[in-house]
Design a protein around this nucleic acid. Structure first.
Length: 951
DNA sequence: GTCATCTACCAG
DNA sequence: CATCGCTGGTAGATGAC
């Protein structure tokens, strides 16, 4: 076969963040934005250097001293957790590794055969080794944790405990009869396999097989092929293997992780929403930056010859999807998502390369380091290779943007050897359209006045939010193919056919109107796990077993975010009647009908047993033949952050908290969409910064607790000094709440009696889905006992009592974290924690007891020195300061408040600036000072401190 | 009208 | 050998109240 499969090589495997950081540190000028890295390190502890440095204070041991280690692929614990563990225990972490790197250990959960071969001369161990060594506080013999076994079989050892620990009680017989131990399977090829099967078939299978459906029997026969079996859910390692190789899984998880990282990094700039809201009516400058054919470009970035050939990234050689292809390949009509076989027929000389997820991550890190270093109002993560920048307050015109864009392109090119393209426009939509025009490797901007004309010839599919389904609907209903056709449609007609919001969205975007504003990330509202490939069951027990593993995976992901759920959704993809058993795509789902069901839990939970029990019932109630299941997904929604010191605060007491209106949305908020002119005032009102400040209220489960969640009873038990402090805290918070019309129900304000609360907790286990009750015919064996029903009804009543306000129902209240505690004087922290019998260790972990760091600005720390510096700055810029410098200084003030926690200092410095400008009253300086004040107030909000008096 | 729940769709 | 069709979000539809 003429397949040319070329492995991407890593000629310079050392292009890691250490180098970047060093650069960033060396040049700390007034205009320098390496400051971001400084923050990033401290905040995230996400960079090795920071970890090493912090290790001096928080190092837990030296068990890994002198050992260099790297991590490969999908692991549990996660990459970053492991990295922290290694570094904090004295190890050297190697970020990016190739075949030649000398390495003490490679940490890897799962090795593909090719990787196993690649790493066969290394010591490859499972993550469990790290965990166990740390737990035992000594270096354990690594040979017990080999990921590569000297003999053929390697699978069982590398498989993480969690997936094996809970062995099904349901499934025994069938499983043991069907499942072949993978060790045996590897060692003994098909002959013995056949023998085993034959034996079992003659013993106990005929009966079971007879009762099987056609689809189940089909799967039974299919799964007899050990190679196929290995690629399906029947393999206990399936999840690891699947997620390790799934591009879509990687895309999703990367996005989530990046959002979080960038959010934290840029949150500390102090320039958040108010800044943006202020300029809501100004002309915006938005930049959309995106790699050209990311995966393909990364894989060929260091191979000049390959770049000239048509290249595509895919797993297989036939019915596998092309994830990315270069522009050379596109000349032949090859597109992303196309099957390899189709692409090959278009271009027989197509070169296929494998995925290299590690390299994508490495390149992306460089990419984002460039973006973070580019002064901006907002940086929004779109994906691993794509981001939006709001430059409104940093540029005057499109030409400025183009200069910045070129600089980004050059820097990314230098660091990664890959090209990015940049689209620029006055809103997100136009920036995106400009980006299309810019590709490949170019910069392009669309002026507002040109937008409408430019768009007319665009296929409607190119509009954001218009996919295959909606575009074909547009064509069928209105014969609309191009944006020009769409422009001719009446707004009302669109809204009638496509819904109020979506119709208006279509109407607006066809005219280049996009009211979407780049805002801060909202916290994640759901966590899900989906598998719709390789799902093949024979017996119900197979499905249950997989469901179990899937739930465990979901819980793992939840525990990483430290959340519990109120609602669990189950999604099952079912092969419909008269659809072929084997889809075109190898082990794919084929054509399916989705089914979804959900369960509610009165109190948040993350208990495997509780969830699994309910899940089992739910799955069975769907009444899907196991042989027809083609995919399963679980989604945790209505999630709440876990808390650890329940004794101190009354966390779950439902309190009516006025909600800040959430105004961002895929298609914009309804109120902005109805009519632009009409809604103008309203949205302005929503966005008035001063209003926003007064009504700033925790709006998400991750936010700060509402003060009233501290139970009076608990308060009374605290030491006198502490009561005072908390009360003062409450006063501050209550004042804010009182300023808006209170919708609090008096019931809420009463402390809930603890016994009742506990009862609810115990009860939630037996709450029964209404649906289940209604559909109980699907479960002939399950009868809901009389008293259970009563209990549920009582509980429902109780629940209603807890949440008399309907609006309340939708929201799951913020739970307290230790932030409130953290705000208190340290002696009081100590006594509270002692009272609550929390260990010193917990304290150190949860509440930063370290003295507040003193942040330097231009190597100056004291107020006097800083004043001197500011005076020089003022004198040297009679016509007003450079806006970069203003940002830089504002961010510094933000850090003084949040990190150094020195409100007085921040106040003194701002007042000094005001003082300096008092004589001349330069307008430019006045504006600059206002900006710094905004940053200060913003930071006060973050710290939950009352705004400073600055006039 | 408001809500919870399920369904459909989209992006990368 | 193949192959790795995820995940988080918004909006619409529907039915209970």
């Amino acid at each position: 076969m003429a397949l040319q499969r070329k492995k991407r090589d890593h000629p310079n495997g050392k292009a890691d963040f250490n180098e970047l950081e060093d650069d960033a540190y060396e040049s700390v000028g007034f205009h320098d934005y390496g400051d971001y890295f400084e923050r990033k390190k401290r905040k995230l502890q996400n960079q090795n250097a920071a970890l090493y440095r912090d290790t001096e204070e928080s190092s837990t041991s030296n068990i890994f001293k002198g050992l260099s280690m790297a991590i490969n692929g999908y692991t549990n614990p996660s990459y970053s957790e492991l990295r922290t563990m290694i570094i904090q225990n004295g190890g050297t972490f190697v970020q990016y590794v190739d075949k030649k790197t000398s390495l003490s250990f490679l940490i890897c959960s799962f090795l593909t055969p090719s990787k196993a071969n690649q790493w066969k001369h290394h010591k490859v161990v499972t993550p469990q080794w790290i965990v166990d060594c740390i737990n035992k506080k000594k270096l354990l013999p690594w040979t017990n944790y080999r990921a590569i076994q000297p003999v053929a079989s390697q699978s069982l050892l590398s498989f993480p405990e969690t997936y094996r620990e809970r062995d099904s009680q349901l499934s025994k017989q069938h499983h043991e009869s069907l499942k072949v131990d993978s060790q045996v399977e590897d060692a003994l090829p098909s002959y013995n396999e056949e023998q085993t099967e034959m034996k079992e078939r003659s013993e106990n299978l005929p009966d079971s097989l007879k009762s099987l459906s056609n689809s189940a029997r089909h799967n039974y026969l299919l799964l007899k092929n050990p190679n196929i079996r290995k690629s399906t859910t029947q393999n206990p390692e399936f999840l690891q293997k699947f997620f390790n190789s799934s591009r879509l899984h990687h895309l999703s998880t990367w996005k989530t992780a990046l959002k979080e990282e960038i959010q934290i990094m840029t949150a500390s700039t102090g320039l958040t929403s108010s800044r943006n809201l202020k300029s809501i009516n100004e002309k915006h400058f938005i930049m959309h930056v995106d790699f050209d054919c990311f995966f393909a470009a990364v894989s060929t970035r260091n191979t000049g010859d390959l770049q000239l050939k048509p290249v595509a990234v895919a797993h297989g050689i036939k019915n596998s999807e092309i994830a990315s292809c270069n522009y050379e390949a596109r000349k032949y009509g090859i597109k992303n998502g196309m099957f390899v076989s189709t692409a090959k027929s278009l271009c027989p000389s197509l070169v296929l390369v494998d995925y290299d997820f590690d390299a994508y991550e490495a390149v992306s890190r460089e990419f984002y380091s460039v973006l973070v270093d580019t002064p901006n109002d907002y940086l929004k993560v779109i994906s691993i290779d794509e981001a939006l920048l709001d430059l409104t307050n940093h540029v005057q015109c499109f030409e400025d943007c183009v200069n910045i864009a070129e600089s980004i392109r050059t820097r990314v090119r230098m660091k990664t050897n890959c090209d990015v393209s940049v689209g620029i426009g006055s809103n997100v939509l136009l920036a995106r359209l400009a980006l299309r025009k810019a590709k490949p490797h170019n910069v392009f901007y669309i002026k507002d006045e040109d937008a409408s004309v430019y768009m007319q010839s665009l296929p409607v599919q190119d509009l954001p939010g218009v996919g295959p389904s909606q575009s074909s609907k547009l064509f069928e209903l209105f014969n609309v193919k191009f944006v020009g056709d769409l422009q001719r449609l009446n707004k009302n007609v669109l809204q009638k056919s496509f819904g109020t919001n979506y119709g208006l969205h279509l109407y607006n975007i066809s005219r280049g109107i996009d009211t979407d504003v780049i805002t801060n990330e909202t916290p994640r509202r759901s966590i899900s796990v989906d598998v719709n490939w390789g799902v093949r069951f024979v017996f119900l027990e197979d499905a249950m077993d997989f469901l179990k593993r899937l739930l465990q995976e979901l819980l793992n992901r939840m525990s990483k975010c430290d959340v519990s759920l109120h609602q669990l959704q189950l999604r099952v993809l079912k092969r419909p009647e008269n659809v072929s058993f084997d889809p075109v795509k190898y082990l794919g789902a084929g054509e399916v009908t989705p089914l979804t069901r959900s369960i509610m839990f009165t109190s948040a939970t993350k208990s495997f047993d509780i969830l699994y029990k309910r899940l089992t019932n739910l799955f069975i109630s769907l009444d899907v033949d196991p042989g027809d299941v083609r995919g399963i997904g679980l989604q945790a929604s209505k999630i709440v952050k876990d808390t650890k010191n329940e004794k101190l605060f009354n966390f779950n007491a439902p309190i009516k908290t006025p909600q800040k209106k959430i105004v961002s949305g895929q298609f914009g908020s309804p109120n902005r969409l109805h009519s632009q002119a009409q809604e103008f005032d309203k949205s302005n009102e929503d966005n008035d910064p001063s209003l926003a400040r007064d009504t700033f209220i925790p709006s998400t489960p991750y936010d700060l607790p509402s003060s009233s969640q501290i139970s009076p009873g608990v308060l009374a038990q605290l030491p006198q000094s502490m009561q005072g402090s908390i009360k003062r805290q409450l006063d501050v918070q209550n004042k804010r709440i009182d300023e808006i019309p209170s919708q609090l129900d008096p019931l809420f304000l009463k402390e809930l009696p603890t016994p009742i609360r506990n009862e609810v907790k115990e009860d939630h286990e037996i709450t029964i889905n209404k649906r289940l009750k209604l559909k109980s015919h699907a479960l002939p064996n399950v009868k809901v006992p009389e008293d259970t029903v009563k209990k549920i009804q009582q509980q429902d009543a109780f629940e209603r009592m807890l949440r008399p306000n309907k609006k309340e129902k939708k929201q799951y209240l913020p739970q307290v974290d230790l932030q409130v505690l953290e705000e208190l004087p340290k002696e009081i922290q100590e006594s509270v924690l002692e009272e609550n019998r929390l260990s010193r260790y917990d304290l150190a972990r949860e509440v930063k007891m370290k003295p507040n760091p003193v942040i330097s600005f231009q190597q100056k720390q004291s107020i006097d020195d800083l004043r001197e510096l500011l005076a020089k700055w003022y004198q040297k810029s009679p016509r007003g300061p450079n806006s970069h410098d203003v940002d830089y200084f504002s961010r510094y003030l933000g850090r003084v408040i949040r990190e150094e926690r020195n409100l007085l200092k921040a106040q003194a410095l701002v007042r000094w600036l005001q003082q300096l400008n008092r004589k001349d009253k330069t307008a430019a300086w006045q504006t600059a000072i206002e900006k710094t004040i905004e940053a200060v107030q913003e930071a006060c909000l973050v710290r939950n401190t009352p705004p400073l008096v600055l006039l």
